[in-house]
Design a protein around this nucleic acid. Structure first.
Lengths: 250, 250
DNA sequence: ATAGTCGTTGCACATGTTGCAACCTCGCCG
DNA sequence: CGGCGAGGTTGCAACATGTGCAACGACTAT
């Protein structure tokens, strides 16, 4: 693996925290500033970073451009956008779209709640595989063997009293989710947040994404969140249809 | 400058076009596939790329995470968000936020029109410096010397009959913009789109961003777009105020 | 004026990167 | 079922590339 690339990416990660000077960045990598300079010059050329008038480095527009290009490319995201926006408008709650990607579950879109108190998240962040409703939906569609493999690799950090803490418990839950067609997170990650999630399928019937609603219990108690299920399931079905899933399937 | 980093970034750019196999990527770079593999492994480790079950590489969530983190960090963007959303809701038109960054003007936020026919743009893309209203607003705030330097470096591609085609014409326009406090793009980039833009200032009075409204003339003729100016200027003032600009300044 | 801070350039060295060739895995087709 | 081919992966030797040093230059503050 490439030391040079790894260093360049560490520079980007550091700049994600805020602006930095050349010296700061060189020290961070533990390299001579010449080295850092040249990595940065390459990054600057492709507009991944830029320097302001005070010679501070910042993340640049090339990064934004690439990221939004990549997000646009995901067919599901585009197909889901209008439906998710409508669901967000109808319920007033935070709506997420997540996908499975190389053993992880990541958020690929979000529509914020209009309530002052709301869940914090960001596109690109990973969901906790043993907690998040979207993760359960996505994992539930994997072949059993891979499900086991993934479950074995999870760090079952007990975030709350409700958190599932063993592979067995998770695998059992995944069976339930696969059978009934939706998943919940009943205060398993944050003690004051409940979520419900539903699968989005493409033309082949495979689950390509999961849509969810997340609600702090000061806004709606658990039972009331479950009442949002019909709207969520209808949204997920509509998105699936736009992705080419034949009607009546799944 | 670093050959390795440049190659890695070229890989990312290529993946921005769509999924690719290892062989395709190696051929693209003109290197042995071993080389491409190791670059990709480094990128994969930081989640900038991932491979699907069919061993195709895609842009990964690390990229999204970094990009949204960086966008969140820009104070202006966060401060502007509610005001721009309100402007978008009130006018129904496409609203952009742009910033000056290392000799370029880039879009850092957008709110799409609800009309079926609308301007195409994407966060991170560059605006044409001699056409875009946002570019004029941002350039107009630069010191005269830098204004000249930037103007000298522009490629004055004549996109339409109205496009400014000389540095002198642009510099004269920038004086006008600086004096009256807003800019327009009267079909200078696309023959069927008009824009107006206004400056957002921070506590020091410097222009840190530009907000704009873009309207295809099938939706509103040029004169009607100018009627949106008061709302745009009010929005820009409100954002400036939230950025700490003392009232009554500028 | 002067000292100090921070970014840039030229150059010799050696480390990290490169390409090759052989190996592996998987899917395809006879 | 067995051989073939199309990818992807590993070990290794050569050398190009990236590295650190030292000297230089621009700016700022005192």
């Amino acid at each position: 693996m490439s030391q040079t690339v790894t260093r360049a990416l560490r520079l980007l990660a550091e700049l994600g925290e805020g602006e930095r000077s050349l010296d700061q960045l060189a020290e961070l990598l533990g390299v001579h500033k010449t080295t850092a300079l040249r990595l940065l010059q390459s990054l600057e050329e492709e507009r991944f970073v830029y320097r302001d008038a005070a010679y501070r480095y910042h993340l640049g527009a090339g990064l934004f451009a690439l990221s939004s290009l990549a997000l646009e490319q995901r067919g599901v995201r585009r197909a889901a956008a209008p439906h998710l926006a409508a669901l967000n408008a109808a319920t007033g709650q935070t709506v997420h779209l997540a996908a499975y990607e190389g053993g992880e579950v990541v958020y690929i879109d979000k529509y914020d709640s209009r309530h002052p108190v709301r869940m914090y998240s960001r596109i690109g962040l990973r969901a906790a595989l043993h907690c998040a409703a979207v993760a359960k939906v996505l994992l539930a569609d994997l072949p059993v063997a891979e499900r086991r493999r993934v479950a074995a690799g999870i760090d079952f950090t007990p975030y709350t009293a409700n958190t599932l803490t063993t592979p067995e418990a998770l695998l059992a839950e995944l069976d339930t989710v696969a059978a009934r067609g939706w998943a919940q997170d009943h205060a398993e990650h944050e003690s004051f947040i409940n979520c419900v999630a539903a699968p989005v399928r493409d033309a082949t019937g495979r689950v390509v994404a999961a849509a969810s609603i997340s609600v702090p219990d000061v806004v709606l108690p658990y039972e009331r969140v479950l009442e949002l299920l019909p709207q969520l399931l209808a949204t997920a079905r509509a998105v699936s249809a736009d992705c080419g899933l034949p009607p009546g399937t799944a």
